[in-house]
């Protein structure tokens, strides 16, 4: 049975419309005009217990909105969702007790105190028994290397250090479902790596379900075998990360090093040229024809070096979001 089940979820925001002119502004004191913005337009997916899934999409695609609905922060305008057998937006205590949402740009830790004080409050809020609390805390401290941070005021921590503490605070009650919204935002590369490793080990150890959004593809490629791509509030793709490229970018990249520049100029007749620099050429070849094209190039041109690759996932995603690629799912 799936642990997260989302069917046709919809959310429309009401945005206050500002009008120009003094009289309009006076009127807006009493009657405000609103514009409806559809953020999520009917999204469906489901996650099994223990899965780690990456939620991809450009800014404003509806990722955060979806996560917030699943965490019970937002009421949807349509559709259904069930997480751990609860309807999230009913905000039942027993539901909130079992989930966590970490937002890279918001913090739950108290700014003026050491993180440890916030942990103790969370112990009371989530009624974590003393032994379980100590056990989880020791584990988190070891995994995230928190010892030097616990006694420092949160406001004096770096962004990455703060995020590690935020994660610890969010996991003290050992949630079964973990929503991560941009957990590595603004954090340096080494720290990003640490956070990723940590999320993976938490997931493995406790079998928690993880749904993650990130701007950094590296987060997703490192953590998630499965991705859900949404764009303009609609589902574009749901499946293996590896086959995402094949589905939405059905081509390969061929890089050539030719013997002379004249030969390089003739490459155009074989395939679409993406880049050309003296004797180096980058081609885009439809997936199905790749071997044929390569064979022809090898036989007809003086080749020094040749490589065939899948396009990098970032480029694939970019193309989708810029509307250059059609999903063939």
């Amino acid at each position: 049975m799936p642990q997260i089940e989302v069917r046709d979820l919809k959310k429309t925001y009401r945005v206050h419309e500002r009008e120009a002119g003094a009289s309009a502004s006076f009127r807006s004191l009493f009657v405000r005009k609103y514009k409806a913005v559809e953020a999520v337009k009917g999204v469906s997916f489901s996650l099994d217990a223990g899965e780690r899934v990456g939620f991809l999409g450009p800014n404003g695609a509806g990722k955060t909105t979806t996560l917030k609905m699943l965490a019970g922060l937002l009421y949807p305008d349509g559709g259904e969702a069930e997480v751990l057998g609860h309807v999230p937006w009913r905000r039942e205590r027993n539901y909130l007790q079992r989930i966590s949402l970490v937002m890279g740009n918001r913090n739950q830790l108290v700014w003026d105190l050491p993180a440890m004080d916030s942990f103790l409050v969370n112990q009371a809020v989530y009624q974590i028994p003393e032994t379980a609390f100590r056990e989880t805390l020791d584990e988190l401290v070891a995994l995230l290397d928190l010892t030097p941070l616990l006694k420092k005021q949160v406001r004096s921590l770096s962004l990455g250090e703060r995020m590690k503490c935020e994660l610890a605070a969010a996991l003290l009650h050992r949630p079964d479902v973990l929503f991560l919204d941009e957990p590595t935002l603004g954090v340096d590369i080494t720290m990003q790596g640490r956070i990723r490793e940590f999320v993976a080990s938490y997931n493995q150890k406790y079998g928690a379900t993880v749904l993650l959004t990130s701007h950094y593809m590296a987060d997703v490629t490192a953590l998630c075998r499965r991705v859900i791509v949404i764009h303009h509030g609609q589902l574009l793709y749901d499946g293996e990360l590896e086959s995402l490229a094949a589905r939405i970018a059905p081509f390969k990249l061929v890089q050539l090093e030719l013997a002379d520049a004249a030969a390089a100029a003739r490459v155009e007749q074989f395939a679409e040229v993406l880049e050309r620099q003296d004797t180096r050429v980058k081609l885009r070849v439809p997936r199905g024809e790749a071997s044929l094209v390569v064979a022809r190039i090898l036989s007809e041109l003086p080749i020094v070096d040749l490589t065939v690759q899948d396009p990098p996932i970032e480029e694939v995603i970019d193309q989708v979001f810029q509307g250059n690629a059609e999903v063939t799912a």
Binding site: A71, L73, R91, N94, L96, R106, N107, Q108, V125, Y126
Partner: peptide
């Protein structure tokens, strides 16, 4: 929002 995530 962070306050709303808590069970109280």
């Amino acid at each position: 929002s962070p306050l709303l995530l808590r069970p109280v």
